[in-house]
């Protein structure tokens, strides 16, 4: 077998390894971002409860209930009222 064959195999191997080495940096940067995202999602583990009033009720339909819920618990729940267009 000519020596060239082996030489070119090794050159090809080194070139491929360099290619993969170049990939390492951007993929780690991406993984850092990814892990930050999943841990944020994990830490802010909220379970929203959605109340939908009947058609003739106003935004304030559930105020009494929410007051009661907040009363029992020391901490106040976050609340978002959304009214759609008619």
């Amino acid at each position: 077998m000519p020596r060239n064959v082996k030489k070119w195999s090794i050159i090809f191997l080194i070139a491929s390894l360099i290619g993969i080495g170049i990939l390492a940096w951007p993929s780690i940067q991406w993984m850092h971002k990814n892990v930050t995202a999943i841990s944020k999602r994990h830490d802010s583990n909220m379970s929203p409860v959605i109340f939908i009033p009947g058609s003739s009720a106003t935004q304030n339909r559930f105020d009494g209930l929410i007051d009661k819920l907040n009363d029992r618990r020391g901490k106040r729940h976050s609340l978002l009222k959304v009214t759609g267009p008619y």
Partner: peptide, 26 residues
């Protein structure tokens, strides 16, 4: 195995098979 073939095999066909397979193997 592929790297061992590149470094130590004296057979032309093995070297070529190794080269063709290297990228998928990586």
């Amino acid at each position: 195995l592929v790297i061992a073939i590149f470094l130590f095999s004296n057979q032309r066909d093995q070297q070529l098979i190794g080269r063709w397979s290297l990228l998928p193997v990586l």
